[in-house]
Design a protein around this nucleic acid. Structure first.
Lengths: 149, 149
DNA sequence: TTTACATATTTGTTTTAACAATAGTTGTTC
DNA sequence: GAACAACTATTGTTAAAACAAATATGTAAA
C-alpha cells in the first residue's frame, strides 16, 4: 500500500518529506512484524539484535562498547540490557582481564540455541521482502547508503 | 557510509537481509537527528508526530482512533500520550457528543505556535535528504511502497 | 608521584512503551 | 426491550528507554 493511504496523508510537503516518513513507517512496520515473532520467546527486538551481534562475534566476547557500536539503535542502555539477558542466562558477563574498565560479554549455549530456534522463523517471515527483486533490494540499500553518506 | 561499515557487519545472509537492516538503521538514524531537534522544546518524536496529525486535521478534531491509525508507530498508548500533551496545554480533549465512546482531540493555539517554531528547524534539518535527487527520492519511496504492498 | 584527562561502564531518576484487563457506550438480534 | 456482541477508550502493572551524573580504571604529562 502506498504511504499516503497507509497514514491517510495526501499532501506531503515534498518528495523528500514523503521519503523520510516512508522510511520511518516501513521501519516501524518491520518492527511490528518482528516483535510479534519474538513475543513467544519473551524477547524484545533489541535483545534479539544484541544476541545476534554476540553470535556473530562468538566465541570471541564483545565489550559493552562493541555492542553499542554495532547496534541498530545506538541509544540503548547496554548495561541494563545485558543484565536482563544475564538473568535469563542467555549471556555471561565478566570483567575484562586486560582492561578492567571493560566487560566481556559472551552468548551462552542457551542463547545460541534460542537463536537457532528463531532462525527458520525469521527466514520465513522475511519471505515478504521478496516483493522486490534482488536488483531492487540492492538498489534500495544503495539509495539508503547514499542518503546517509 | 555504507551499512556494513556503520554496523561493522561484512557478511549479510542475503541482499534482502541487508536491505531490511539498512531500513531499520536509517530510520533510527533519522530518529536520532529528529529527537535532538525536539529536545529543546521538550517534545518526544511521538508527541511531535501527533501534533502534526492534529494540525493536519485542524480545525476538525481527531478521535483517539484517528490518531492511532495515522501514527507512524501504531503501538503507542494514545490515551496517556494525549494526556501528557493536555497537561502542557498543547491539545484539548472532550467527549464526542455524537458518540460518547469517542473523544474529540484538538490542537490548541499554543500547540500550533510550537509547530510553527519547529517548521523552519525541521526544514533545515531535512537538507541532508538532498544527498538524493528528487528522482532518487521518488524511486526510494516507490520501492518501499512496493515492499509493503 | 601527583595531577589531569580520557575511557568504559554503572547507577539514579523520570518518562514512556508494552501488554493485559476492564469499563462504558452503542449497535444488533431475538 | 433485554441480552449479547462490538467498539472505543481507560487503567493497572511491568519492562524498557531517556537523560544526567557518578564511579572506576587507565594513560600521559609535569
Amino acid at each position: 500500500m502506498s504511504i499516503h493511504k497507509d497514514i491517510q496523508q495526501e499532501n506531503f510537503k515534498s518528495v523528500y518529506q514523503k521519503m523520510m516518513i516512508n522510511i520511518l513507517y516501513t521501519s516501524s512496520w518491520f518492527e511490528d512484524n518482528n516483535a510479534a515473532i519474538m513475543r513467544d520467546k519473551k524477547l524484545s527486538i533489541t535483545q534479539f539484535n544484541v544476541l545476534r551481534i554476540l553470535r556473530g562475534s562468538h566465541p570471541k566476547p564483545c565489550t559493552g562498547q562493541d555492542i553499542q557500536e554495532r547496534m541498530i539503535n545506538k541509544r540503548s542502555d547496554v548495561t541494563r540490557l545485558i543484565e536482563r539477558l544475564r538473568k535469563t542466562e542467555l549471556v555471561t558477563r565478566e570483567v575484562c582481564p586486560e582492561n578492567r574498565r571493560k566487560v566481556d560479554i559472551l552468548i551462552t549455549n542457551k542463547g545460541l540455541q534460542l537463536l537457532h530456534e528463531l532462525d527458520p522463523v525469521m527466514e520465513a517471515s522475511s519471505e515478504v521482502l521478496k516483493k522486490l527483486s534482488e536488483e531492487e533490494a540492492e538498489q534500495l540499500s544503495s539509495l539508503l547508503d547514499k542518503l546517509r553518506s
